[in-house]
Structures are given as C-alpha cells and as structure tokens.
Amino acid sequence: MEMTTKNQSKRFVFSQEVAWEDLGGGIRRQILGYDEHLMLVRVLFEKGAVGVVHHHPHRQTTYVESGVFRVRIGDEEAILRAGDGFFVPPDVPHGAEALEAGSLIDVFAPARRSFLGLDED
C-alpha cells in the first residue's frame, strides 16, 4: 500500500479522494501532489472571490484551467482566461480576482510546507 506522508504525496493522486480545504471568501484548495521540492494545487474560485495580494519565497507558475481572472504580479496586471498562465518569481507580491467562477492550477517550488500544516513558508 502506498502511503502519504508530510514529506511526499502518493504517486497517484485521484481528485475524488482528496479533501478540499475551504479558505473562505469563495476560495477552496486541493493539494494534488508534492514532495519537499515541488507542489501541485488546484484552487477553485467563486465569481468575485479575491486571492489577496501576498508574497512567499517560492517560485510559482499557474495555469488557468477555467474561468476569467484579473491577476496582479508586482506592478503588472492582466486579464487571463482558460488556457493562459503566469509565473511569479520568489517574494514578488501577487494576487488574483475571479471575474468569472473558475479554477487555477498552481505549481510551487519548493513545496508550500504551510499548506501541509508544517512550519511557515
């Protein structure tokens, strides 16, 4: 049997078996795979939900799976739609607003340990 630990997810992750975490404000997240170097996360936004501007020491690249988002990275802003993506360098302030309900697929390097209930990022 393949086990999940706080250091690494299962090799095969089935979304129907992974709990959603309600972040409040119309945003939910689901962790779909990780080890200490890399993490994949799906984030669902209701229309009007806002991922407040924040920063962290991780590299982040995001794919817009569905919906329409206003994304701010540093001093730049763009409207992104399904199929688009963006990259955030370490420690650069960024945030997103769902202009339509949708989902983002985030990849972090290294993994966001705080998402696993471990130390702060």
Results as ranks from 00 to 15, higher is better:
residue 7 N to L: 08
residue 110 P to Q: 05
residue 1 M to H: 10
residue 101 A to W: 01
residue 46 E to K: 10
residue 100 E to L: 13
residue 58 H to N: 11
residue 9 S to E: 04
residue 48 G to E: 11
residue 80 L to T: 05
residue 92 V to M: 02
residue 78 A to G: 08
residue 90 P to N: 10
residue 107 V to R: 08
residue 59 R to N: 14
residue 8 Q to T: 06
residue 105 I to S: 06
residue 67 G to Y: 02
residue 16 Q to V: 11
residue 51 G to D: 10
residue 102 G to K: 15
residue 76 E to T: 15
residue 45 F to D: 10
residue 49 A to H: 04
residue 85 G to A: 09
residue 65 E to L: 13
residue 81 R to N: 12
residue 35 D to Y: 02
residue 21 E to D: 12
residue 74 G to L: 09
residue 25 G to H: 03
residue 16 Q to S: 14
residue 30 Q to V: 05
residue 105 I to T: 10
residue 31 I to R: 04
residue 20 W to Y: 08
residue 78 A to N: 14
residue 77 E to Q: 12
residue 106 D to V: 02
residue 115 F to A: 10
residue 8 Q to N: 07
residue 34 Y to C: 05
residue 63 Y to R: 11
residue 90 P to W: 04
residue 62 T to C: 13
residue 52 V to K: 13
residue 30 Q to D: 09
residue 113 R to I: 00
residue 89 P to S: 11
residue 41 V to Q: 01
residue 74 G to D: 12
residue 9 S to F: 00
residue 13 V to I: 13
residue 44 L to P: 02
residue 38 L to E: 05
residue 31 I to P: 00
residue 43 V to H: 12
residue 110 P to M: 07
residue 25 G to M: 03
residue 57 P to F: 01
residue 86 F to P: 06
residue 120 E to T: 13
residue 8 Q to V: 05
residue 15 S to K: 12
residue 88 V to G: 06
residue 69 F to G: 09
residue 3 M to G: 05
residue 46 E to C: 03
residue 43 V to M: 13
residue 70 R to F: 05
residue 101 A to I: 00
residue 21 E to S: 14
residue 47 K to G: 03
residue 31 I to D: 02
residue 55 H to R: 14
residue 96 A to R: 10
residue 25 G to L: 06
residue 54 H to G: 07
residue 108 F to T: 00
residue 27 I to T: 04
residue 98 A to N: 11
residue 79 I to H: 03
residue 65 E to N: 13
residue 97 E to Q: 08
residue 94 H to E: 09
residue 87 F to Q: 09
residue 24 G to R: 03
residue 2 E to Q: 11
residue 118 L to S: 00
residue 82 A to G: 11
residue 103 S to N: 13
residue 61 T to M: 15
residue 110 P to H: 04
residue 113 R to G: 00
residue 101 A to H: 00
residue 15 S to W: 07
residue 110 P to K: 01
residue 21 E to G: 08
residue 32 L to E: 10
residue 53 V to H: 04
residue 90 P to L: 08
residue 97 E to Y: 00
residue 104 L to A: 02
residue 24 G to Q: 04
residue 47 K to P: 06
residue 98 A to W: 11
residue 94 H to F: 08
residue 85 G to N: 03
residue 117 G to A: 11
residue 13 V to H: 05
residue 84 D to W: 05
residue 121 D to H: 02
residue 91 D to M: 13
residue 92 V to E: 04
residue 54 H to C: 08
residue 71 V to Y: 01
residue 116 L to W: 00
residue 95 G to Q: 07
residue 56 H to Q: 06
residue 115 F to S: 06
residue 59 R to H: 12
residue 69 F to E: 09
residue 93 P to G: 09
residue 12 F to M: 14
residue 4 T to I: 14
residue 28 R to C: 12
residue 90 P to A: 12
residue 15 S to M: 09
residue 21 E to F: 09
residue 3 M to A: 15
residue 107 V to H: 07
residue 2 E to K: 15
residue 47 K to I: 04
residue 117 G to R: 06
residue 82 A to C: 08
residue 52 V to R: 12
residue 54 H to D: 06
residue 7 N to F: 01
residue 48 G to D: 14
residue 111 A to V: 07
residue 53 V to R: 14
residue 99 L to C: 03
residue 85 G to F: 02
residue 70 R to W: 07
residue 81 R to T: 14
residue 66 S to L: 07
residue 14 F to E: 13
residue 16 Q to R: 15
